[in-house]
Every structure is written in C-alpha cells, then in structure tokens.
C-alpha cells in the first residue's frame, strides 16, 4: 500500500490530516498496523484533554503487543473514534480511514516539523536497515 501524499507523518508512525476547519485528525500508519498485527483493543484519550507534542495519549493493542500512540502535535482532544472500541480490526483493514482522535491545534507551526509522504518513506527505509 502506498503512503498517502495528502497526509503528514510522525516518525513514531502516526499520520496527521489537516482538516478544512484547521483541526487535525490522527491515526496510525499502514506500516504500524502491519507491524503490530491483528488489533484487539484500543484505548483512546479523554475528550478535552490537552496533549503536549510527543505525549503518550492512546494505546493500541494487537494479539502480539501493546503499543503507545504519541501525539504528533500538541492540542486539545475534541473528538475520539469510539467506534474502534468495539471494532479495533478497522485499523488493520483501513489504517488511513480508521482515525483515533481529533485535535484542536495549539501551535499550527508544529505541522511544518512533520514528515511528508516522501520523508516518511525514507524514515521507514532507514528503519529497515
């Protein structure tokens, strides 16, 4: 699966989508879900919680292991995808549609520090070596 060009990425394997209203939607990448295997549990942050950049804020658990999800940018949690709590396998099926949470950005400039699709691809390649 190719890496969607319209998204931004963190080295810790989260994707970030900038919405028209200036908020961001966050999920985990195809590479991350493939690494973890079949998802069985998702723990999402509280709506209203203020996250610092790179703060641990969610947990995805597969049959294999638990993995922390980090906030790629700082901001306030405005919505979580509670549908995943009963259907965590959606992350395996459609990683770029199965979003985890949405943030109201506290510093939009942080977006510039994230990787684009090309940069993320390179990060994956260097990780493989």
């Amino acid at each position: 699966m190719s890496i969607p060009a319209e998204l931004k990425y963190a080295k810790s394997h989260e994707w970030v989508k900038l919405e028209a209203d200036g908020t961001v939607t966050i999920g985990i990448t195809q590479h991350a879900q493939e690494l973890l295997g079949d998802m069985v549990f998702v723990e999402l942050p509280q709506v209203g919680r203020n996250l610092a950049q790179r703060e641990e804020c969610a947990v995805v658990e597969s049959v294999k292991a638990a993995s922390d999800v980090y906030a790629p940018v700082s901001g306030e949690v405005i919505e979580v995808n509670s549908e995943l709590e009963s259907a965590p396998e959606k992350i395996n099926q459609e990683p770029y549609a199965a979003w985890l949470f949405k943030l109201k950005l506290s510093d939009p400039a942080e977006l510039d520090g994230l990787l684009d699709a090309n940069g993320y691809q390179q990060a994956l390649e260097s990780e493989a070596h």
Partner: peptide, 8 residues
C-alpha cells in the same frame, strides 16, 4: 513463522 497474514 509468526503468522501467514492474520493470526486471528
């Protein structure tokens, strides 16, 4: 082999 696609 850990799995051949899906452990579940």
């Amino acid at each position: 082999p850990l799995h051949y696609g899906s452990q579940l």
